[in-house]
Design a protein around this nucleic acid. Structure first.
Length: 265
DNA sequence: AATTACACCAACCGCACATGC
DNA sequence: CGCATGTGCGGTTGGTGTAAT
């Protein structure tokens, strides 16, 4: 049973997008705007699934996408946010203007997760200890002691939690952190069987704080009288924001702030 | 030079939530 | 209220380029 697939895959193109397809999609969205993705292929003439069109637009074609290398500052912020939020890529993307959840996720999986797991202490200053970026690091030495991907897959057969959309209400209702993170502190094991070096948000918050943070979508509960106490973990995002605003400066900083405000309200 | 193994990342997949009827 | 549909999310896959052997 189950619901029908999002689209009939018969006769639809898959794989990498061509420049021509990109042009068609861009011009269509410029004319009609975003949304109603299922009807986009029909109306634009693209032989693609609507979902694929959305993904292509969101992750690659949107004009505000910032392409190129992740800066050390962005990298540092990702590490910090991940320690607070876990795999909430879309939430991180909202705090990193111009970066997509997919890009952050890929960057974490390919660059940062390994580095964080190799450096159990002070993971957040990774950017400073390796300012030239991950691509300058030698590849092989690590790999020699690593299992191959296939071997890893054979060895790690642990329940994989399903994707759960994060909303203020679903978190309260489902307590959906259970799906992504286990353990109360760094160095334990995630549900995928890999070592995790971030804290479960629940583990560093009291029950009341958990409720407040959940209600506010993980942000600091400044409206409920916590007063920005830096020792309060629920205020960590505020502090991260402040640090990042210093780095960004100018207009993008205020954009980030408004984005962040929207998360809190 | 050929082969192998791996890193990277765009794209896909399936599920859950939101929304409209 | 229940169902169907649209959308968003996070995990995973597979193609490609490159370094190592």
């Amino acid at each position: 049973m189950g619901r029908a697939p999002c689209c009939s895959k018969v006769g639809l193109r898959r794989g990498p997008w061509s420049i021509k397809e990109d042009d068609i999609l861009i011009s269509y969205i410029q004319q009609h705007g975003e949304g109603h993705w299922r009807s986009v292929p029909k109306k634009s003439g693209l032989l693609r699934c609507g979902k694929s069109c959305r993904l292509r637009w969101m992750n690659y074609l949107r004009p505000d996408i910032k392409r190129g290398n992740i800066s050390p500052d962005e990298e540092d912020l990702i590490v910090r946010m991940h320690s607070l939020l876990g795999n909430r890529w879309s939430l991180m993307a909202k705090l990193l203007p111009g970066r997509t959840d997919n890009e952050i996720k890929n960057y974490w999986n390919s660059h940062l997760s390994k580095r964080v797991s190799d450096a159990p202490t002070e993971p957040t200053r990774a950017a400073e200890t390796n300012p030239s970026g991950p691509k300058s690091a030698p590849k092989r030495p690590i790999d020699k002691i690593e299992l191959t991907k296939k071997k890893k897959k054979q060895m790690v057969k642990v329940h994989q939690p399903k994707a759960v959309r994060v909303s203020r209400f679903s978190i309260v209702r489902n307590n959906s952190f259970d799906s992504g993170v286990s353990g109360a502190e760094g160095g334990l094991t995630s549900s995928s069987g890999t070592a995790v070096k971030y804290l479960d948000v629940r583990s560093v918050l009291e029950d009341d704080d958990i409720h407040d943070v959940y209600q506010l979508g993980y942000g600091c509960n400044t409206s409920m009288g916590e007063g920005g106490d830096p020792s309060n973990p629920s205020c960590k995002l505020d502090r991260i924001l402040e640090e990042y605003k210093q780095l960004l400066k100018g207009d993008s900083g205020s954009q980030l702030e408004s984005c962040y405000d929207s998360l809190r309200t």
